[in-house]
Write a protein that binds this DNA or RNA. Structure first.
Lengths: 231, 231
DNA sequence: CGACCACTTGAAAACTCTCAAGGCAAGTGG
DNA sequence: CCACTTGCCTTGAGAGTTTTCAAGTGGTCG
């Protein structure tokens, strides 16, 4: 099954690799209507989930809006990542929106199949728990960043994240199609502050701006910016 | 078993209420050395977990420190809440510290017993997942607050949280023993800003300061402060 | 070509933190 | 019993950071 060969170059392990063929078949993957273009909404906050989404190709932002209307990206999903499992687990409405960042293909797994597998397969259960556990860790780390870091540090943090998630293309540029606004929405700051900070990094030769592309010649220069440098 | 009668007045359901007597016995609760006084460290970030902690009485802060040394409280645990389950699940070191906020009694469950029950009892597994799911939701909500709200809103948010977690004592004061610094550590701001904001609320008759106590006569006045009031 | 969208820059305003200092209450030791 | 220490609360003023608002540029697509 093609699906099992994750084309994800980063360190993610395929979520279903421990299952038997029968178990995978039992998931009744649906392939209908599962390709999205940049900007397409995959699901909307407040609606109820029917399926679990598994990203097969592309990239997805999970985001919500504050009272003031400002957008906050809480997570980036890539090939191999699951979307919407939390709403399914609790049989609750989605707590965020999911939007494709580029051409993205997902598999849909009927909610019931997912829950069934959870209830019958302890290993699978355990894996989902590890996943939740991991997401929780990331959320808490991010909490600390948001609460305590300067804009400069938050932007550096975000660029390192993008570097690690998306890698570099042939010209050493971060291989994401994110706009400045979206980078700010991840970092938790305004578009203008994002632009100014990236521009500072450019002047300091930490990154190089090439149109919309951000060229990273030495990731360690960026990583140096992650921490408060007050002795 | 006394343990099952949660003395928690708030809406928490007891985590173990779905288990059979045998299953509870299988957890091999340990009661040794399980009372802590205010300020006592229950576990430290970076160390490895041996047991799961179940808060029986009192209150616990889960907190970590940023690069600059500033403390951030990520969670408050009360009777019925579990501590350290995430580290156990992943067999990883604790990612935060836990410190008693008042005289606190906890039960310890050997890590192995917990994991065993997880692997053999699908319902229990599911419950832990719901718990994780819930914690994740809170973390993400808090993320949004941190990223987008003003100090005033964050303090209001925190006071409402404390109101809901700890309730009011006989004099209508929030029934927590938290210092101003700790309130700031939850909200994600400095002690001084916390004091100034609470002082503002006092002047505006939203809360009433009585020594270290904060009297809340009408919680809705505070809740009005949760949202940005820009039309 | 015009509209639109993203990017960029400047200047002022708003907000929050930092640093410094003082007050108050409880507990301690002489 | 009093002086002293300690921890927490409070306030002020200035510094620093970040946002806001306004304006302008450049590229792209129909």
């Amino acid at each position: 099954m093609q699906f099992l060969k994750s084309n994800n170059s980063s360190s993610h392990k395929c979520f279903f690799s421990g299952l038997t063929r029968e178990q995978i078949v039992s998931l009744e993957l649906e392939e209908i209507d599962t390709t999205y273009l940049r900007g397409d909404l995959i699901f909307r906050e407040g609606t109820y989930p029917k399926s679990l989404f598994v990203v097969y190709r592309g990239a997805v932002k999970v985001h919500k809006y504050g009272d003031n209307g400002k957008e906050q990206i809480t997570r980036l999903a890539q090939p191999g990542d699951l979307l919407g499992y939390r709403a399914l687990l609790g049989n609750q409405p989605y707590k965020a929106n999911a939007t494709a960042l580029q051409e993205t293909k997902v598999f849909k797994i009927p909610g019931k199949s997912f829950i069934n597998l959870l209830k019958t397969n302890a290993d699978f259960s355990f894996k989902v728990m590890e996943l939740l556990s991991d997401d929780l860790k990331h959320a808490e780390d991010k909490l600390l960043n948001m609460a305590q870091k300067s804009v400069r540090e938050k932007i550096a943090e975000t660029l390192v994240l993008l570097y690690e998630k998306f890698g570099l293309d042939e010209s050493s540029a971060i291989n994401s199609k994110l706009t400045r606004k979206e980078i700010g929405d991840i970092a938790g700051t305004t578009t203008e502050s994002t632009i100014r900070t990236i521009s500072d990094f450019n002047k300091e030769n930490i990154v190089q701006i090439n149109g919309k592309k951000l060229i990273v010649n030495d990731i360690n220069l960026l990583k140096n910016e992650l921490h408060n440098k007050i002795a």
